[in-house]
Each structure stands twice: as structure tokens, then as C-alpha cells.
Amino acid sequence: MTGLGFDIAHLFAGGLVLVSLMLLYQDRLTAMIHVFAVQALVLTASVAWQAWVQDAPHLYVTAAIALVFKAIIIPVALSRMVARLGIQRGIETVVGVGPTMLAGIGLVALSMVVMLPVTATADPLAREDLAFALSVVLLGLLMMVTRRNAVSQVIGFMSLENGLILAAAGAKGMPLVVEISVAFSVLIAFIVIGIVIFRIRERFDTVDVGALDRFRGDRT
């Protein structure tokens, strides 16, 4: 691994973490969708670079999926849906932006502390990639728990999944990466957009999950 190759991989993976942090403080749905598209672009670059340095052509497929599906199709579809439903307004958060950002920084630190010592024997590229990937995964989780809105929870899930793809691409020679990314994409397309949000819309005229809480079955 040349020094430059390592640095560029590092740059992209670090960029992914940065964009994940940016996702945390978006307070409008359209802005959030744009940032997600940027994250998908960074993921594309990162995976494509991994494909180049590892000399693994199948990773280009994963990169292409990230580009076409996550950076273009999903954001366009989500934007159109948001426009159609007329929910461009601000997003209701459970926790304020300040504490969320602090928690996010804490999670990034945590994943460095957890991953770097245990991967001491792995090669440096995979090692840093894993630490960054875990950060993205945890930030995605954080986003899912701090947002009440169904669309932003879905974006949180997709962001989390981007972290997983980063980890899988960084694990040199890992089989099934392409299959996993295809499986994820198909599922996201079908389940999330097609059905869940559609049904929530159908029933509540809102995509605020908070509206669902009133119907908790076991409560009296």
C-alpha cells in the first residue's frame, strides 16, 4: 500500500464520518435529503478507491449501485415524496441539536477507542476503515433514535447501511459485498419507500411517527 493510496482512502472514509455528523444537525427534510446524497457520493468515491487499490473489480459494482441508487434515485424519490406530501417544514427532534452533536462526537471517539486496539494486527487501511465505519453506523443509529419523523428515520437507516458497506468494502477480499449491497438496496426500495411510508401516509396524512404513538395497543 503506497502512502498516497492510504491517505486518499483515509480522506474518503473520514469524509463519510464528517457527512454523517452533518446529517445530525439538519433541521429540514429537503436539506437532509441533499446531505444524504452527498454522503452517498462520498461512499461511491470511497468504494471506488478501494476497488482500485485492492484491484477488486467487483467493488466497482458496489460503487455504481451507491452512485445510481443512493446518490440519485433515492434522493429524487424522497424529494418528490416530501414535495407531494407537503412536509418540507422543520423536523421535530426528540433531543436538541447541541446534545445530539455531543453524543455524536462521543460515539466517534468510542468507536476509535473500541476498534483501533483490537485490530492492531490487521493492515492499517482495513483498520482505520473499520473504525470509521463503526462511527458511521453508530451515528446512523443515533439519528434513528433522535428523530421522530419516518423519512428521517429511513435516512438514518440508509446512512447506517452506508457505514456497513464501507466496512465490507474495506475488508479486503470479502466475498458477497456486491450481493449484500444489492440486497440492501432492493429491500430499502421495496420496503421503506413503497410500503411503510405509503401506509403511514394512507392512514395518518403525516409521516411523523409520533402520531403513531397514540395508537399503542397495550395502553389504557
Binding site: M144, F157, L164, V196, I200, L212, R216, G217
Partner: peptide
């Protein structure tokens, strides 16, 4: 309403677990 909420909760927690 209840079924959709249950499915959504299951989807969110299930996908986190799976991730």
C-alpha cells in the same frame, strides 16, 4: 393503526439488530 405501528417498530429495531 396498531398494526402499522407494530410493523414500523419491528422494522426499525429489526434492521438495527441486523445491521
Amino acid at each position: 393503526h396498531e398494526a402499522i405501528e407494530a410493523a414500523w417498530k419491528y422494522f426499525i429495531l429489526g434492521s438495527v439488530g441486523i445491521a
